[in-house]
Design a protein around this nucleic acid. Structure first.
Lengths: 268, 268
DNA sequence: CGTTCACTTGACTACGTTCAAGAAGGGTGG
DNA sequence: CCACCCTTCTTGAACGTAGTCAAGTGAACG
């Protein structure tokens, strides 16, 4: 059962789930009692399954539906200036994919495992959204989570050493999969080395070398290439912290000397 | 008036503005007639001003309000593993900042120009949100815009040549500032070289060298360090396209041979 | 059992970082 | 108004790390 850590889902309830932390509650409160929100979606959702490697949607094509992932994992891709594409994120159970701009999908979404999802047609979805503030609010919370993940991605690929990126990546995956459980835990990496390389923005070779280095120093243990156990979190933390002078200490030193001395912003 | 390109705002109307494109309309339709949405916010907003270098909010502090920017520009910072901080985005007039997670600000927001903003206390804001689906919907659209910007940021800093990053950055700034206007246009860069460096994830030295290179080849013209005019968009495009083998062509070749031959996902 | 693709390992090159020093801009004080 | 100071920015030179090309290994599948 270890491999399913990233793919697990509460199978007791059925139907699409929009589950995100509330931005302004300090405790771990959810955006809204999930049952209420999900009931709004149950009527318009249909179950779809994808095989590994299949596309859930493609960047630039007309956006006809969104997808709430029930089980499995996907990678989200974006075209790059040089005609290639690049992984900008991974999504798992309970995540929402298929976001659109100007009526077209923003990213290409590809199943990296066998996938089960709830398909939510946009017309019906939009009708419900404009009548249920709770539902939109829950989706907004989900969106901000995605925003934060994207920002974290930028921070991740700002580490220079490839091992540092991999170390951070593995720790975040474990945090996402493990949540509350402590102790040593093997986790399943559903994505290929190539996809990891694209996400970390390093060459596949560098990913290999970084895995090798982590193995060499004993911070991780790898089985069958896709099962990873973190043996030494501290060592990984140490790698993530690089000597690089990334604007240490307080940001930019506050108001420059040229500004008025009174500190408080004026409220009119 | 050229310098105000990035800072301009429709001064005809007053009050906070939530203005984002509708995700599912192909034309440039807005999320909702702005007047309706903004009227909801007018009652709870107060005007605040910040001087250059002042902080609108700080990462980790209790989130008491959000801010709708009326004029000026800000930079958003995130702490990095090595105790430093890093620019994850720039926001301008009509943008929303001060997003939170678990009751605390997610980023540090710093004014890079004199700033005017509408302050929206979270309690009042949340009350309005939970009663006005249109309002939440508009904010969700804004959030997805921010998400896309963050993803684009990741794509931007995936270019390894520093000139490529700068070229892309300048083009995006111009696109954001200029919108519809064609032709040569000088634009104002409100942020410092150091902030640009942090956002592009290169050293300040590399930013200098990249500016020098763009100048040398005549693609841009710079005045007083902060006024830039793009002379040759094609040259900048060419720089942004690097030889790098970034997974060219179709992503990952579709379903691997191991999968069933039938192509369509099964809809239950 | 053979073929294919993904992954790994090795050597060379190139770009950016770093360290160090110098130039320029803005603000303050005289 | 000018001179001074501080900060920011620019330029230069050596090092380090990842990219690239190339070959080799392993696994998965037919």
């Amino acid at each position: 059962m270890a491999p399913s850590a990233l793919l697990r889902r509460d199978t007791a309830r059925m139907g699409p789930v929009i589950d995100a932390p509330h931005p302004w509650r300090e405790d771990g409160a959810r955006a809204k009692a999930a049952e209420v929100v999900d009931a709004q979606l149950a009527g318009i959702a249909s179950i779809v399954r994808f095989r590994r490697g299949e596309f859930v949607c493609r960047e630039g094509e007309p956006a006809v539906a969104m997808f709430s992932l029930a089980s499995g994992a996907v990678s989200s891709w974006l075209h790059t200036p040089e005609q290639g594409q690049q992984v900008v994120g991974f999504q798992f159970a309970n995540d929402l994919v298929g976001f659109a701009r100007a009526g077209r999908y923003r990213t290409t979404v590809k199943a990296v495992t066998p996938l089960t999802a709830y398909r939510l047609p946009v017309e019906a979805l939009e009708r419900r959204l404009l009548r249920n503030p709770d539902l939109v609010f829950a989706i907004a919370c989900k969106l901000s989570d995605d925003l934060y993940a994207a920002q974290d991605h930028a921070v991740l690929i700002s580490r220079h050493r490839a091992v540092a990126r991999l170390a951070l990546f593995l720790q975040r995956l474990e945090a996402r999969a493990g949540d509350e459980r402590g102790g040593l835990r093997e986790m399943f990496l559903p994505m290929s080395r190539t996809e990891i390389a694209s996400y970390l923005n390093v060459s596949p070779e560098a990913v290999s070398r970084s895995f090798a280095e982590l193995l060499r120093q004993g911070s991780i243990r790898v089985r069958e290439r896709r099962y990873v156990m973190i043996m030494d979190h501290a060592a990984l933390d140490a790698l993530a912290v690089e000597p690089r002078a990334a604007l240490e200490g307080e940001v930019g030193g506050g108001p420059p000397p040229g500004c008025d001395p009174d500190d408080a912003p004026c409220v009119l």
